[in-house]
Amino acid sequence: NIFRILADLSHLASIVILLETIRKARQIDGISLKTQILYVLVFCTRYLDLLTFRWTSLYNTLMKFFFIGTSVYVVKLMQDCKLTNPVSYKDMMFRDTFQIKYLLGPCALLALVFNYKFTVLELCWSFSIWLESVAILPQLFMLSRSGKASTLTTHYIFALGLYRALYIPNWIWRYYSENRLEKLSIFTGLLQTALYSDFFYIYYRKVMKGRGFELP
């Protein structure tokens, strides 16, 4: 359906924007390495079903490889910055201070409690869905500490947030058309979108009206 396609396109766009930002500017100011590492973990644990070869569709499989590949590539590009632009790297590390153990622990626990089946694959999937919902927190934390961000970084965060937000009408659509109700995805998707809501509001008020992103 249209919402699902727009959501996935928005997800793709967010990654393209991020890669372009890092490659063009040759700096990683304002981008959280911790969030990017969390995304590697999210995609690697979610797409373990690639190993079972029970592939849903070519589209699905290609996208999964794309998301795993690009997330690893982003982390590598950011690590490279240590040598190519040590000032920018140090500055980023200095600001990227969110403690991710407070996300990993609860997500692992939630995965053990809320899952569809107590198998390794399903537990990893549930863990990834919980972790994705909070993976942006180090990035948002960094943003709120520095108070401003480059326009490209805010476009990246916006596109990434829009992706999960667009999944919500997709789930409503699928409930009526397929009688499908995927409770875990829906709950974590709502949680994820809620975490973005403050950012969305400032993005709308400032960036979309041509002013820079600056926190009040």
Partner: peptide, 10 residues
């Protein structure tokens, strides 16, 4: 309603 085990979303 059904809760399918196939994860066909990304």
């Amino acid at each position: 309603t059904t809760t399918p085990l196939e994860h066909d979303e990304l």
